[in-house]
């Protein structure tokens, strides 16, 4: 049952809660977990943990072989971007539009976005060859809040990542504030 809200904007968002955010289909990783992308990552982040690249060193650890850096979890299922026009789309990697609370709030003037929380959980480290899928479920939308940046709504979703067997390998909780610039503190 949908909760009743006296705020008509919030009321309009209620039907999104508990549903997939964005595509109703799982995102499928365009590539299996692989060494070239791991190498690119560890070089970019200057992370010299040997378990990510060196089979001999990795074999001597609990992992028993090469594993991907855990923080890469989100990277594997990132959509392939359409570079042309990405700025005009506000950074959206593609132009496939889904009805969602973020664009609904844009239309109400809550155009600014601030990421506030990220919680990554790992059931196991990924290995080369793992093919990931992810599904985003909208967990909650707050009532309208008065924040230092302006009036806004906190939107929280949980992305669940599964492997080729359908087993959960990790999750990410993500929370953003969608706010109306200029509706808050003077220096916002």
């Amino acid at each position: 049952m949908a909760a009743k809200h006296t705020d008509p904007i919030r009321e309009k968002l209620e039907h999104f809660v508990g549903k997939p955010l964005g595509s109703p289909e799982p995102q499928v990783a365009p590539d299996a977990v692989n060494l070239p992308m791991i190498r690119h990552w560890v070089d970019a982040m200057d992370d010299r943990n040997p378990v990510y690249l060196y089979e001999d060193a990795a074999k001597r650890t609990r992992f028993g072989g090469i594993v991907a850096p855990p923080a890469m979890l989100q990277a594997w299922t990132m959509g392939r971007p359409k570079i042309q026009g990405i700025a005009e789309r506000g950074g959206s990697p593609d132009d496939i539009a889904f009805d969602n609370p973020i664009t609904a709030l844009d239309e109400e003037g809550f155009v600014a976005t601030l990421a506030t929380n990220s919680e990554l959980e790992f059931e196991r480290y990924l290995r080369p060859g793992d093919v990931l899928r992810s599904v985003n479920i909208l967990e909650s939308i707050s009532t309208q809040k008065k924040t230092g940046l302006g009036l806004g709504y906190f939107i929280t979703w949980v992305t669940t990542y599964t492997d080729g067997n359908g087993d959960v390998v990790g999750r990410q909780l993500f929370r953003i504030l969608k706010f109306k610039p200029g509706s808050g503190a003077a220096d916002a």
């Binding site: 040997p50 378990v51 060193a57 923080a71 990220s118 919680e119 990554l120 790992f122 480290y125």
Partner: peptide
């Protein structure tokens, strides 16, 4: 390298 990260909450 033996450490396994289970959660990063920020």
């Amino acid at each position: 390298p033996e450490a396994m990260v289970r959660k990063i909450a920020i």
